Computed example of a mutant assay.
Amino acid sequence: MIARVTRNEFSKGFFDASRPAIVADALGDWRIAERWTPAYLAAVAQSRAVVSSRANDGQYRFEPSHDGARSHAFDNSETAFGEVARRLADPDAGDPVYVMQQSIPDKLPELLGNLVVPHWIEAERPAINLWFGRRTTTQLHFDYSNNFFAQLHGSKAFTLFDPRDSDCLYPYPHETATAHLSHVDVDRPDLERYPDFARASPMRFTMEAGELLFLPAFWWHHVSAPGVAVSVNFWWQPGLRQILDARNSTRALPSLYAIDRLRSFKQSFLEPAQLDFVTAAERFLDHGRTWAAGILALAAFDEWGSGGPWPGAARRPAGCRLSGLADDLRELGAIALARDGAPTAQRHAIEDAASLAGAVAQRHDDALIERERVAALLHAVTVLGAAPGTASA
């Protein structure tokens, strides 16, 4: 069972430890009985354009497309907020509709004065979103951000799983934008196809109006609402310790590599901790996270290649899918070995980089990646001068 605690109790043991909990007395300043009912919402921000979603069966699911991107199994349309809010406020209306993950500051600023950012994250500048729907179910997934989830009207049923259960939850392939989603239908699990799901340990509970859920990053969750429900959530970035500890935390790296070879990941998560690709890879190695250390070591070698004056450097695309990284780095390895003064002691590690890239692309699995291979490549990259001069934290 999830702990239901007071604000004082939550502050003393749950927030810093990244343990899920429901804070029962956190929303007293919100005046939710006046300011967050469907009828109230139908009367404010009427002309604001929002995206409303419709799934005939109430199941809001995502699937990977043929190119690894994310596609959804429901219809979206831009709608005036007042129109969809009136439909949801009508007790006789039965159509499924969901206004989900709509930014309150950007789309519905009229609601900002009705909420209070939880004081634990006042300095984090969190993303704030509205969730407003009828009979909705979202598939089992995890988020890459920490979450405070305020239940304001109606109820929602949650099923949580610890990140340590990730291998039992059958995630989508790691080189897709849906790598944070599970194949398993929590309400009707097919144990013939997904037998290891029986070994996972679910935490099931129902959130009622007036309760605030702390959902740490990387915790798997399945959410459903039996009727009309209004919720607001706050997302903010996890700390480096959370990323190091959660075995599913790096499943987004292949998608980020395909966008910009992890440059944005480095800027957002590593540099604030005074880390570069090499020093971050060393941190992951220390935690036994060899797959993540491997991709970061490859990113360090790749970064060295992108900064060189040699032929072909300017033609390198901004991003690269892991399935094509081996070929990309094979050419880069030849350049490194052909340079005057190429480090003879590191030749094997440089020659092995393409093979290591192939192993990383194969599967998100620490058992596939040998620590010695990663350490050797990190040493070779350091000798090549690839590591920026930030200090290890």
Rank of each mutant, 00 (worst) to 15 (best):
H174D: 02
S52P: 01
L377H: 01
E208I: 02
V374L: 05
A49C: 08
A361D: 11
V232P: 01
W235R: 01
L152R: 01
R164I: 11
V23H: 02
D276I: 11
L181G: 01
G68F: 13
S65Y: 07
R261V: 11
A42R: 00
T159R: 02
Y98R: 03
S71R: 14
F14D: 00
G288Q: 08
L212T: 01
R87Q: 14
K12T: 15
G239L: 10
E370K: 06
R241N: 12
L88E: 00
D162F: 06
Q151D: 04
A150I: 01
I369Q: 04
E122L: 10
P195I: 04
V360N: 02
C320F: 10
E34V: 10
G28E: 15
T290E: 10
D245V: 03
E175I: 09
L368V: 10
L322H: 08
Y257I: 07
W236S: 09
K12A: 15
P91C: 07
T37K: 06
M203P: 02
E331P: 02
A123S: 15
L160R: 00
I104S: 05
W120R: 03
R125Y: 04
Q237M: 08
L240P: 04
D190A: 05
G312A: 13
R283F: 07
D29L: 13
D90R: 03
T136P: 00
P317H: 03
I2C: 10
V84Y: 03
A342F: 12
G13K: 11
F62S: 13
S71I: 13
V5I: 11
G133I: 10
H174V: 05
M203K: 10
R135M: 11
A217I: 09
Y144H: 12
I369K: 00
P311A: 15
H348T: 14
T37H: 01
A123G: 08
L332S: 08
R48I: 12
T290D: 09
V381C: 15
D92L: 12
S77V: 13
D75K: 05
R199Y: 06
L270W: 02
M203Y: 03
L377P: 10
G58C: 07
G312W: 01
E124C: 06
D95P: 02
R48G: 14
H153E: 13
R193D: 05
Y98H: 10
A209Q: 00
P118K: 05
